[in-house]
Design a protein around this nucleic acid. Structure first.
Lengths: 196, 196
DNA sequence: TGCCGGTATGGCACTCAGTGCCATTTTGGC
DNA sequence: GCCAAAATGGCACTGAGTGCCATACCGGCA
């Protein structure tokens, strides 16, 4: 055992990063659908079978650590003071998505473009977002004073998914606008627009 | 030629409806993933190949006419008076989704439950929604006074997708709540919650 | 009635994602 | 150097989706 996760786990992570980088290069060169798992395996110098041991699906390679980010958001949200309203707390929590991401505008633009023209990718992305936004709902319900376990109140879910909708709109605008204005700025503008 | 679309087209539509009904029955009985196209073909008494001539994908059979509904919403939205703000106009346009749908609570609950426990389905549903919500954006931009062709403004997209988020939250609450309160009521409550 | 052309159908073979199984190799720890 | 766990590779399989072609069907027309 060397380090906190052991040598095995570390090399495993390294291989995973390497595969993801190789795959992303191919995706951007040829398009997502035109790239096969077999080809990725060949270029990354692993077997096709091993590929599926590192990533559950082809989409997962491109989607990266969306799920992990959701956990971070949830943590930050839970850590915000109770005095904050849902929108303030969510805004603070969603900040980690932007701040902990390496946002090279030009690169992000290409990724976003690929996502837009690849339905299956976009679908999985939305699916993953849905999953962890669902986990944010109880926390927002607590802030709204909704008794836990009471079904049929749409408010918390509406707030969480709307916040995400604003974030997505902001990122979209950020890429189509060429990255001139910051994502924060655009997010705040989006939120202001729906709440006006 | 009999009728407006000819005999051929009519029988084709009839077959399509029949296949959809058969498939939906199987989906609800065994679950979406556990039902194969081969099985649907057998029960609907067509070949597997013909199945793919009626529906592009397995998900499409379950998703039904979501795309067509989007066109209706768009039409209604465009027909609303300019004096209405985006939220009022959207609320009126989205009404057609609820009013033109045969909402048998118990039936809808089972469908919704299936959607929830089948990620691939939910993902495709959201994806289709995203597609036609995108077509709603220009109309909302017009109402906001955004000059056409100017990219980088997140407001219209934020409003449209948030409205959809509220509708989805409302439908969710409606099914989990057993259909006691109307979808309209829940939708208005959701909108009020995000705009408060 | 019988023929014609377009359309629907069925069958077949193929690609590709994803999975289960097993034999083999690698590697960390003693 | 040895052992057990983990990683890997190979193989065969399922299931969705597609292209191709031969055939069956059916509405219209002579």
């Amino acid at each position: 055992m060397i380090g906190i996760m052991g040598l095995r786990e570390r090399t495993r992570q390294a291989v995973k990063v390497d595969i993801a980088a190789t795959a992303m290069r191919l995706f951007l060169e040829q398009g997502f659908d035109a790239t096969t798992m077999e080809q990725i395996a060949a270029e990354a110098e692993v077997s096709r079978r091993s590929l599926f041991r590192y990533f559950e699906s082809k989409e997962d390679i491109a989607l990266g650590d969306i799920a992990e980010r959701g956990v971070r958001v949830q943590e930050v949200l839970a850590g915000r003071p109770d005095s904050e309203g849902p929108w303030e707390a969510l805004r603070a929590a969603l900040d980690v998505l932007a701040t902990e991401m390496e946002f090279t505008p030009e690169w992000a633009a290409r990724i976003t473009a690929m996502f837009h023209e690849t339905p299956s990718l976009r679908a999985r992305q939305v699916e993953k977002q849905l999953r962890w936004t669902g986990q944010l709902v109880p926390e927002v319900e607590r802030r709204l004073g909704v008794p836990p376990g009471s079904a049929g109140d749409p408010r918390a879910a509406a707030i969480v998914t709307s916040a995400l909708a604003c974030l997505n709109a902001a990122v979209d605008a950020w890429t189509t606008g060429g990255g001139k204005r910051s994502v924060f700025e655009l997010y705040d503008e989006a939120v202001a627009a729906i709440r006006a």
